[in-house]
Design a protein around this nucleic acid. Structure first.
Length: 423
RNA sequence: GCGGUAUUGGUGAAGUGGUUAACACAUCGGUUUGUGGUACCGACACACGUGGGUUCGAUUCCCACAUACCGCCCCA
């Protein structure tokens, strides 16, 4: 094996691409219903776009970014996530302009890149489907975003979904909470893991997310964000919960949930699933939240935003074959006998396809028996056999492969005759 | 970035320091020459991830590298 694909990448072969197309079509259909339009942004952006948006304390920026200098010495990065590029496009194209109805709603799909150690469900080139809505701070929009994500996964037949929500509050609440965490953790500083010591300086919220056993014990008694929300933030969160109740959405409040990216505030959420494909461990398939400061951060006007992203590879692992539409069968396999038929087959095939049939033939000059065998393997509905005698009489033998019945029909009207047989 | 396990044909795999690397599936061909799904017969590894080393000799032992999977970290 001379050449191998780069570490952490995948070839999506024809059998698999069918599933991808299916998922993408459901995404498009569901999102369009909620009036999200597709946006396509570059796969690479100026490095600063991600550094600025994700925050330089995030692991994604500090150690997982695929960045390089191009021939013009521009500092470029392959996108590690979708939101930053979409926000950049929103600002650059002045989509905040008054001619656009707010909220401005877009969805995207495509490859993302993170320099990480690959594992199952985690690739260096992976794919996300996500959506964003700009220009409204309404909790009703928050509820809609959660709802559209849920509908999408439900339509794909994903079971055992758990919706976890939390709030990070407005900047004031978040700042107060930040201080409370620093006050709480500082006495334990020596007991914290090395990672968390660094987090204490840079982003104490993320200590809450630590998997370290020692950290977890300390975190267990840490103050909760819910006790530091100011009045508007509290009301907002309560209202969102009411809305989710109205929608009959089952959710759990997880006050220790934080996000890997620094730009979130107010509502954040994750959809978790427990599935044998992941050893019955709970994994996150979809995650998102509100980022009211991000548009401004990237040079736009003060504009609230909210969105989510979901990992397509993980989603694929959850899809059951029975949830997928069945593969479409081949309508006609053309069997040729002899050189004249071989030549005539080109035009016949072309006519059949033009008439709307999926049609194929043998291109390896194989024997009749082998051609029928192939027709059988391809699950062809009909075989059409053409030989010298058929050409002389301008007829064709049409065989129904399921019943074995064979009839002779006019070759000149073959497509029409087939349609008649089909009923 | 750290630790562990693995790497044999199109696929699933067995196996050994030494003349021909099991078996199964798939594929191809044949079983009287213009017809499929069954049955029977036959064919099918430049050789055993790459590069070194040990050895009279390595696919089998050692080292390095690559990749995959699992755990940590982090995340979708």
């Amino acid at each position: 094996m001379r050449y191998q694909k780069p570490k952490g990448t995948m070839d999506i072969l024809p059998g698999e691409s069918r599933k991808w197309q299916y998922v993408e079509s459901i995404a498009q259909d569901t999102f369009n219903k909620y009036r999200f339009s597709e946006i396509r942004t570059p796969i690479f952006e100026s490095y600063d776009v991600f550094e600025r948006s994700s925050g330089d304390t995030s692991d994604i920026v500090s150690k997982e970014m695929y960045d390089f200098h191009d021939k013009g010495d521009r500092h470029i990065a392959l996108r590690p996530e979708g939101t930053a590029g979409v926000v950049r496009a929103y600002v650059e194209n002045k989509l905040y302009g008054p001619e656009n109805i707010k909220p401005y709603k877009v969805w995207y799909k495509g490859p993302m890149f993170r320099y990480e150690r690959p594992q199952s469900g985690r690739q260096r080139q992976f794919h996300q489907i996500g959506l964003e809505a700009f220009g409204s701070d309404s909790p009703e929009l928050d509820a809609e975003i959660i709802s559209v994500g849920l509908e999408f996964l439900n339509r794909l037949g994903i079971k055992n979904l758990k919706v976890a929500i939390n709030t990070l509050g407005d900047p004031e609440s978040r700042a107060n909470y930040h201080q409370a965490l620093v006050d709480y953790f500082t006495p334990f500083k020596d007991e914290l893991s090395d990672d968390s010591k660094v987090r204490l300086e840079k982003n104490p919220l993320r200590i809450l997310d630590s998997k370290d056993k020692g950290d977890k014990k300390i975190v267990a008694n840490a103050p909760s964000i819910l006790d530091y929300l100011n009045d508007p933030s509290q009301k907002r969160f309560d209202y969102l919960k009411d809305l989710l109740d109205d929608l009959d959405i089952n959710y759990e409040v997880d006050s220790t949930m934080v996000r890997g990216l620094d730009y979130y505030n107010h509502t954040i959420f994750e959809f978790m699933v427990t599935d044998p494909a992941f050893d019955n461990k709970e994994i996150t398939v979809l995650a998102g939240g509100r980022y009211n400061g991000l548009v401004e951060e990237l040079g736009g006007p003060e504009t609230p935003g909210i969105g989510f992203g979901l990992g397509v590879e993980r989603l694929m692992m959850l899809l059951k074959d029975e949830d997928l539409p069945s593969e479409s069968d081949l309508d006609v396999y053309l069997v040729t006998i002899g050189e004249k038929a071989e030549r005539a087959s080109v035009k016949i095939l072309s006519d059949l396809r033009r008439a709307g049939f999926s049609a194929d033939k043998d291109y390896l000059q194989r024997k009749i028996k082998a051609q029928f065998k192939t027709a059988n393997n391809l699950n062809a509905k009909y075989t059409v056999t053409i030989g010298d005698s058929e050409l002389e009489n301008s007829t064709a033998n049409v065989k129904n492969m399921a019943t074995g019945e064979q009839v002779s029909v006019s070759l000149t009207n073959l497509a029409d005759e087939l349609k008649k047989i089909e009923g």
